[in-house]
Structures are given as C-alpha cells and as structure tokens.
Amino acid sequence: MQTDDILVNALGGLVRIRFDFSDQQFDEARWGKLRGPWSDAMPGNDPTPAVEDIVAELLWAFPDDDGLPGSVAELSTHTTLAAIEAQRGRLLMLHAAGIAHPSGQVLAFIGPSGRGKTTLARNLGAKYGYVTDETVGIEADGRVHPYRKPLSVIRPGEAYKEQLAPSGLGLGALPSAPLALAGLVLVSRLDGFSGAAAIGTLGLCEALVAIVPEISYLADMNKPLQTIASHVARCGAIRQVTYGEASEVLPLVPQLLAWEQPEAWEAVLPTEETAGVRSPLAPESYLLAPVLDAVEAGGLTAVLDGNRMVHVLDGVGPLVWRSLCEGRNFASLAQAVERQFGAPPEQKLEEAVVGILSTLADAGLLVRVPAA
C-alpha cells in the first residue's frame, strides 16, 4: 500500500491526512487537486508558531477522477471534525468566521450554518487576514489559533461545492503578529434587508443564548459560561451586526475592533451547604438541579442546564436563584424577595415565592422532592 500525507495546521495542532493509493494509480494532477485547497493551512505557509504535535490522523482513500470532487469536499469536513475532536475540552471553539487585523486582533463572527459566514469571510478577508470560515479556536488567555481551511464555493450544475485555498480566492495572509481575540460578533444576515448595516451591543446573558449553541463540545469545557464571560471582559462587549449583503460589513470593521466596556459579571453557583428549601404550603422540598454553569450580569442570570440549554432569569428570578445557591431557607428567601420587590399586591408572599420555585422546577432548574 503506497501512502503519502498532508499536514494541516488546525486549531493549534497538526492533523495528518494519509492517503491510501492501493486501489488507484498515483496521478500527479489528481494529487495536486487534493493538496491544493490545503496549501494555506500547511505549516510551512503559516506564520503562526510552528506546531510539532500531531493531534489527529486520517487515512483517506485516493479517489479516481469521478470521485474526486466529492472526496475533496468530504475530506474538508472530516479534517475539521478531527481537529475539533482533538481539542475538545481545551479550547473554546466557536462556530464562527474569523478575520485578523495586521496588529493581530481577531474578530470572530458567530452564527449557525447557512447564516453566511463563508461569504462574510470572503468579503472581509479580501482586506484583512483570513483566519477561518469554520471554527475559531481560543485559548484561555485569548490567543487565537487559525484554521485556514479551504472555502466551499458553489458551482452551478455541480453536485459538490468546490474547495479552494484562501489565497486562490485573493484572501489575505495572516499577520506576523500573534493572534488575539478582539471581538465577538453575532451575525444577523437578513434576506431582503434594505436598511444600512448596523451594529448593536448585547448584554452578556442575552448573548449567551445565541452563543452557546455555536460552541463545539461545550459539555467538555470547564465552566463554559464563565469562560465566555472572561473572554468578553478581555475583548469588550458582545456586538451583533445586522445586514443584508456581506460587503456592507467591511466599513464597520474598525468600529467592531474598537473596545467597548462590557458588563460586570460574577458566577452564581450552589455552595456545598446548599440543601434546598421546604415549601410551607405543600409537603415537598425544592432542590437545585445539577447545572453546568451560571453567571449573573446586568440584573439577569444565565443558567446552563445539564442539557446544554441556557435559561435567562429576570425579574425576581436572579434573587431567588442566588438565595438558593447561598443555602437560604424558605423564610429567609421570602424576606429577601419582600425587601427587594415588596409584598405582592394580589396574593400572599409565601404563595408568590412558591409560584416562582414551581416555575423554576418546571424549567428543569429545580427538582421537586416529595416529603417522605
């Protein structure tokens, strides 16, 4: 079996793609079509610090001419999955497009598939350095690892998207300066949008609802909400850019790179002494359900449950959550609610508090425990 390989610099590690030629005769032209799309991600063509560790390996069958387009496209997908799998639990990996200013400042444009990130990367990458159109990998200290994978381009009448190297599309090289996260931007591309492209600032808890689904291997991360909040505190408030055409975003990049004061935040999690509260109106107790993380900012509390869903508590919810995390009993909790919000006008205080506890239980954040 004849084999050869391609080394790809992906998210702070090397992925080695090995090719099996046992069923196909080696063809230099076909080999070039397999290697060409990855040329900008090969270590020798990447100015980021050299990576020595091979974190993942793929063995790929050398395709014939008929299977070449599909093989090139599928190889890109499998390489991405291998790179992400290798860094699970270590990096914050956002489903995002990334571009880099010559200073090394990186903007991550976050959004689900089909939101136009590749088109955005092509437009912005014509002036700035192309970091990725797929996954932005971020270290705890804000350093960004590039993934200069091929971009997928639709060709009329073709079953598979063509995979092209960034440089082949005229996209910018990475700066020589170290890459560091400078902004998190939620993408809101609206078909038929007729207004001018606009930037909005989002509160942390509000933004977490949109960001959390776009994180790879979220449950493997240590304190994922706190990790995001720490990055926000370092790089500035989370923005959202609303636009119709990607070209409209280019003039906004300097403003997106400008630092804006983020909200102060703190973690709000159960203490070891938390035992739950007993309802005086029914023979049951309410215990905090296991959660992955929780943070408070701007008068709201974002709680990440065991199913990786973010719940945003407002009104009296943050006070109740904090009180439960601090281990208060029912009487102390009710007093805290009355001090901050006053007595409810249409029902007894105890009934109102039990109603809040019941709502949190219905959301899966508390567990009802019947009396023995």
Score class of each variant (00 low, 15 high):
1 M>T: 14
6 I>A: 05
6 I>T: 10
10 A>R: 04
11 L>H: 05
15 V>C: 12
20 D>V: 04
21 F>S: 03
23 D>Y: 08
27 D>G: 12
27 D>T: 12
34 L>K: 06
41 A>C: 12
50 A>G: 04
53 D>Y: 00
56 A>V: 05
58 L>R: 13
58 L>D: 12
62 F>P: 00
68 L>T: 08
71 S>F: 02
74 E>N: 14
75 L>A: 04
79 T>V: 15
83 A>M: 03
96 A>V: 03
97 A>C: 06
98 G>Q: 07
98 G>F: 06
99 I>F: 06
100 A>Y: 10
109 F>T: 00
110 I>A: 04
110 I>V: 15
115 R>D: 05
115 R>T: 14
122 R>K: 15
125 G>C: 08
129 G>N: 06
131 V>W: 06
133 D>M: 04
133 D>W: 09
136 V>C: 11
141 D>K: 10
143 R>G: 02
146 P>I: 05
149 K>W: 01
152 S>P: 01
152 S>K: 03
158 E>F: 07
163 Q>I: 03
166 P>Q: 09
178 P>M: 11
190 L>F: 01
195 G>W: 02
202 L>Y: 06
202 L>T: 01
206 E>H: 11
206 E>S: 14
209 V>L: 10
209 V>S: 04
209 V>A: 05
218 L>S: 02
223 K>R: 15
224 P>Y: 09
226 Q>I: 04
230 S>L: 02
236 G>P: 03
237 A>L: 05
246 A>Q: 03
248 E>M: 05
253 V>S: 10
258 A>L: 12
261 Q>W: 10
265 W>D: 03
266 E>Y: 09
269 L>C: 08
271 T>P: 01
272 E>L: 14
279 S>F: 01
293 D>V: 01
295 V>T: 09
296 E>S: 15
299 G>L: 13
301 T>P: 04
304 L>N: 02
313 L>I: 11
314 D>H: 15
316 V>R: 13
318 P>C: 13
346 E>C: 07
355 G>H: 07
360 L>H: 01
